[in-house]
Nucleic acid binder design. Structure first.
Lengths: 108, 108
DNA sequence: TTTATTTATCGCAAAGATACGATAAAGCAA
DNA sequence: TTGCTTTATCGTATCTTTGCGATAAATAAA
């Protein structure tokens, strides 16, 4: 997960882009939505909801984990995931600060 | 810009993912930051700020345009861009609604 | 008109993402 | 132990993204 020229950009830019990339696939949005809806950790139930192979779902879960948007623990043979709301709040705060609108100027 | 299985997901999921995808590259974040900072439309000044070829910057601008995050008008030989704050607000609203935290439950 | 300036687009090479089946790992039940 | 369930990882085919140089288009100045 690296761009040729990632070093050319600032820390904030990279962090925002990284979270956005994790959110940039409808399947991952759907997974997050499911986790938010159930308010509880689920494991392979996600596979039933989505029309994807379990290997694909595992891959998406790993990306969400790597981005810090979800947390997971292993419970016996099952895995349990839930949303990391702190990461979401951090993203929203960064987002708001970065795109602070000094009047929402629009000229075009 | 299409996924094999895009149709499997809902409208909201696809819309959120599409905007997130536009935001998923540090160069595009940097461009948006520049547009927000200057509060005015700029054209090729972006090329000077970023360490990218102008063809690459044009490409990024096109993606931001297609996602509706910026607006642009041609002014003679120059092009003028600015942030579309309505799109940003729409994204933030969608985001908040979709990830409505009924108590920010975390179990892992 | 010619020339310079600015931007957009085309074509390509390299890198990355997506999805799947097959396989492996880890725990539980019998 | 053996078998079952659940999840993670590997390998691979296909498609997408990224970045650049070269080219084209469109306007302004000379």
């Amino acid at each position: 997960m690296a761009f040729h020229k990632r070093n050319e950009f600032g820390t904030v830019e990279n962090e925002l882009a990284e979270v956005a990339k994790a959110l940039s696939h409808p399947a991952r949005i759907a997974i997050l939505g499911e986790l938010a809806r159930r308010q509880a950790c689920i494991c392979g139930e996600i596979v039933e909801v989505l029309t994807l192979a379990h290997s694909t779902v595992s891959q998406h879960l790993k990306e969400l984990l790597d981005a810090g948007l979800i947390q997971g623990t292993v419970e016996g043979p099952k895995s349990c995931y839930c949303i990391n709301y702190e990461a979401f709040e951090r993203f929203e705060a960064l987002f708001k600060t970065f795109f602070a609108q000094p009047g929402s100027f629009t000229c075009c």
